[in-house]
Each structure stands twice: as C-alpha cells, then as structure tokens.
C-alpha cells in the first residue's frame, strides 16, 4: 500500500519537551510523508499525546517542525486537522452535528441559524465519511464511531496538509472501527495528505500503517510495520507475545 509521492513531508527534527524540570520528550525526529499513514505507538506515558500537542503547537517545544518539499525547502504554513480521542462535553446540551460542523464553514454565529448553502457544504463533508444521516442528530446521541466520523469530517475542513488522529478508535466497536479506517485509507489516497495516527491497536497499525514510529520519550525505532514489529525495542516495550 504505497501512496507516498516522496516529495513533500512534515519534517520533525529534534523535538524536545520539558515541563517542571521533567523531560517529557527528547530529540524526536521523523518524516511524516504526505499520502502515507504514519502510526505512533508506545506504552501509556510514552509521550504520544505530548508529541501531538507539540505538533499542533499547543505547548512549547525545542527543535523544529516544518512542511517541506523534496529539496527540504518550506512550502507553506502547515494546515493541521485534528481528531481528538474523545469529546468530554455535556451530553444534554442542545447541540446537533450540524451546529458543531457549521463552526468550520461559516463565521455566522450558530445561534442565528445555519443557511441552506452552509447546510449543503456540511452534507458534502459528511458524505466523505459516510455520515450524512448524522446531520440533524444531537451530538450527545451519537455513538463513539459516529462521533469519530463526524470529527473526521470536521478535521478535513479546511483541507489539511497533516491530519492528526489521537487514538481515534478507542471506545468504538469493531464495525465502526473498520469503517473508520477504510474511510481514512480512501482519504489518504484521494487527498494525498499526511496522516499521523496514535493507536494502541497493534494489529490495525500493522494492517493500515505505511510507517510506524515506536516512542518511549524518544524514538526507539521506526520504519515499515514488518520491520518495527521484529525489532528488539518492540519486544522490550510490548513483549514478544504481543507480536501480531
């Protein structure tokens, strides 16, 4: 499954994060290629979420994160789409999928309503993730898988250069999971964007990822899934019994 153009990529160089004198990440370097699905794996506390927050520029870090072409030159400001692990919100809130999605398509305050044109755009966005039937659903009544698909549709507008998914499949049943990853697989080919997926599901990572990065505060090893899954570092972190 090779979709990479090997032209543009997100160049992560020596990213380190410290907080309160404690080193959370040390010299993390990787290339996240467009058209590829890069998976970030590691135990809890390995710094996966910290790395994502640095990538989203939500916490201070040292090192550099650039969007570059094949010659290593900066090509544009990086547009990043983000799908959080889960939403922690008041499920009784009178808020529909359309209400939330509208914030991505218009500056008009949602409480004044959503125009027909914007509703059309939202329907198109939901169609990309097979979720048009969700448009009028209260957000609090969406299942885990439905919420993730809606968040994926939201993250694709405006069109991102890099899509970051923080364990998007936790709390989702097997059917929803397959649907979600198939959608992702289709998008990486059609949209040619770089995708970074944080996941605990090693079987799914092996099946869908092009490149795997094993993290434990720093990069222990990285490469194709078949390579990474046979390294001693992988055995040390997950134990040989985990190999799938």
């Amino acid at each position: 499954m090779e979709h990479s153009c090997h032209l543009c990529h997100i160049d992560v160089q020596n990213v380190s994060v410290s907080r309160g004198g404690q080193e959370l990440l040390r010299d993390v370097s990787m290339h996240i290629h467009c058209g590829q699905l890069t998976a970030l794996i590691g135990q809890n506390g390995a710094g996966k979420t910290t790395f994502i927050r640095a990538l989203l520029r939500q916490i201070p870090f040292s090192g550099s994160i650039r969007h570059v072409n094949e010659h290593g030159r900066d090509i544009s400001r990086l547009v990043t789409g983000y799908v959080p692990q889960h939403l922690e919100f008041d499920r009784e809130m009178p808020l529909t999928v359309q209400d939330l999605m509208a914030t991505a398509f218009t500056r008009r305050p949602v409480w004044t309503g959503v125009s027909k044109a914007v509703r059309g755009q939202i329907l198109e966005a939901l169609a990309e993730v097979n979720a048009t039937d969700l448009i009028d659903r209260p957000l609090g009544r969406c299942s885990g898988g439905e919420t993730q698909r809606m968040l994926l549709a939201l993250s694709l507008h405006p069109a991102p250069d890099l899509l970051v998914l923080d364990e998007p499949v936790s709390g989702v049943d097997a059917g929803g999971l397959t649907l979600f990853l198939e959608t992702l697989d289709r998008l990486r080919a059609s949209r040619h964007m770089a995708i970074l997926l944080v996941s605990h599901d090693l079987r799914l990572v092996r099946e869908y990822a092009d490149h795997v990065v094993l993290l434990d505060r720093t990069v222990l090893t990285q490469g194709a899934p078949d390579y990474v899954y046979q390294t001693p570092e992988f055995d040390r972190v997950f134990g040989s019994g985990e190999v799938v």
């Binding site: 989203l56 939500q58 919100f89 957000l139």
Partner: peptide, 22 residues
C-alpha cells in the same frame, strides 16, 4: 461581541484542544 466570539466559544466548550487546533 457575542456574535463575534460565539462559534469559537462553542467549540471550546465541546473540546478545548480541538478548538485550539482550529
């Protein structure tokens, strides 16, 4: 002011990191 800040505030109340990423 309410018209200006509402959408951003709504996203924040649903998920702050998501709102920031946008």
């Amino acid at each position: 002011l309410w018209a200006f800040i509402y959408n951003g505030l709504l996203l924040t109340s649903v998920n702050t990191p998501l709102a920031r990423s946008r």
